[in-house]
């Protein structure tokens, strides 16, 4: 529920709830294409290409070391939706990887990005690199 609120701008702006069960990406009706200007769509597709390039050249080669993979689900209104798989899905360090690693890399290259969101269902990860536990 926290993630739902965060995506849809509810009252409780919590950042960092990567372990909450997110809605599947298909339900992310973030904006209606028909009301978006060509400029906005163009900006998003430019960001999409740049982020894909960052994933291919810097991010995925690094997380591959732990059997992980990060994919770009979409960019809409400069909001970036990422999905973590393999060793990253359900990993105790996934929040660090996303917020401290990936997010800072993306923001350094592309400061215009508004928000980077993890849409991974971490609770379904079958093979996390290190399972979250303890206090």
């Amino acid at each position: 529920m926290g993630l739902f609120r965060r995506w849809f701008g509810g009252t409780e702006q919590r950042s960092g709830e990567a372990v909450a069960s997110p809605a599947p990406p298909e339900t992310l009706a973030v904006s209606d294409e028909s009301v978006r200007s060509d400029g906005e769509q163009g900006e998003d597709s430019r960001l999409r290409a740049k982020i894909q390039d960052l994933l291919d050249t810097a991010i995925n080669p690094a997380v591959a070391g732990h059997g992980g993979v990060v994919s770009l689900v979409d960019v809409k209104d400069k909001m970036v939706y990422l999905q973590m798989g393999g060793g990253c899905q359900g990993c105790g360090m996934a929040d660090v990887t996303l917020k401290q690693g990936i997010e800072t890399m993306i923001r350094e290259e592309l400061p215009e990005v508004v928000e980077i969101l993890d849409v991974t269902d971490h609770a379904a990860g079958q093979n996390p690199y290190s399972a979250a536990s303890k206090k």
Binding site: G16, A18, M93, D95, Q100, S130, K134
Partner: peptide, 14 residues
């Protein structure tokens, strides 16, 4: 590496 507290602290710092 195994703590539950990561998201809360990184979120607060941000």
């Amino acid at each position: 590496t195994m703590t539950y507290r990561t998201a809360a602290f990184l979120g607060a710092a941000r």
